[in-house]
């Protein structure tokens, strides 16, 4: 019997349990509060104001700024660019990552060397990867165009040709048709670099996913009469679906968070052709004329989109992905 016992009994059971849980929750509540919830609230607040660069003076405009920013053609254009960028960086990278994971999952001598090579882009920092691709893609002194010259192909205006995205009224249909007439080489260039970085990560996680598949399933399928392709289609792919789903979610989040490679390669240009949403938030808020309120609104827009997208992905995939 301790002296504290009677006092504790005075409190209802639920409250007592909450008080016990509190010290365990406090550290993460503190972290989330300082770095997530406070900035989130502050962004909502800032969205209501138009201010001068250092916010020494600000004018309350209410929801007007939300309406203006979220319906502006700049915002819509950067959304389109972001969506295209996501498509370009996730789908091919997953396809290539799956291919590399499958071939490096074979039991061959020295396969570890190939696994290391295939996953090495995971270890390269964004800045280094971006500079590497700058050297490759530079329109006038890049290695790739020199190579094109050597084999008689016409040079491509990597990084600098905005294609369809020049002009703020590009519709999705414009984007689609322009792909074949006037591709947005700037965005493709940035996507190449980003996709290349993703391949390493996707190869690693897909390889890990492949290795959890029981070898006997393949043996059983072989006796059942399945060929290589059927094995891949009926065993590998369904068994890998949770990993593929995970890779697609991570890839999408990465695409929405891409910043460094865009800053180094194109700075969002030319004329917003590679201006993804995150980069647009940065230029709006931290470059003259420092429109912090508008940037906050864009950030909130990004937040809501991510929320919807992630929920949507889980909803869409929940029925099709097989979890053991």
């Amino acid at each position: 019997m301790t002296a504290g016992m009677p006092a504790r009994r005075l409190l209802p059971r639920g409250v007592r349990e909450f008080l016990t849980a509190l010290p365990f929750l406090l550290p993460s509540m503190l972290l989330f509060g300082v770095f997530v919830f406070y900035p989130l609230g502050k962004s909502v607040y800032l969205g209501f104001f138009i201010s001068n660069p250092f916010r020494t003076r600000q004018i309350f405009v209410g929801f007007d700024q939300y309406r203006d920013v979220l319906t502006s053609s700049d915002f819509i254009s950067s959304l389109l660019v972001t969506a295209t960028f996501t498509l370009y960086t996730v789908v091919p990278a997953i396809a290539i990552g799956t291919f590399l994971a499958v071939i490096s999952n074979q039991k061959l001598p020295g396969i570890v060397i190939f696994r290391t090579i295939f996953s090495s882009t995971l270890a390269a920092s964004v800045a280094i990867s971006a500079v590497l691709w700058l050297v490759l893609l530079h329109p006038s002194i890049g290695v790739l165009n020199d190579g094109f010259d050597a084999v008689g192909l016409s040079r491509v205006n990597w990084l600098e040709d905005g294609g369809w995205a020049i002009g703020e009224r590009a519709t999705p249909w414009d984007m689609f048709t322009a792909w074949f007439i006037d591709p947005n080489w700037a965005l493709i260039s940035v996507s190449l670099a980003t996709g290349w970085m993703n391949i390493g990560l996707f190869t690693v996680i897909l390889l890990a996913g492949l290795q959890t598949i029981d070898e006997e399933l393949y043996e059983s399928a072989r006796i059942d009469g399945a060929g290589r392709w059927s094995e891949f289609w009926h065993i590998t792919l369904p068994m890998l679906s949770p990993t593929l789903f995970f890779a697609s979610v991570v890839g999408t989040i990465f695409a929405f968070q891409a910043f460094g490679q865009i800053q180094i390669l194109t700075q969002g240009g030319p004329v917003d052709a590679s201006n993804v949403l995150l980069y647009s938030i940065y230029t709006t808020g931290f470059e003259a004329p420092f429109r912090v309120g508008a940037a906050s609104v864009q950030a909130l827009g990004l937040f809501v989109i991510m929320l919807v997208l992630t929920f949507g992905q889980f909803r869409l995939m929940s029925g099709r992905v097989f979890y053991r």
Binding site: L217, F322, R324
Partner: peptide, 8 residues
Amino acid sequence: SYALYPHM
């Protein structure tokens, strides 16, 4: 291990 296809 029976090697049943778990997703089918």
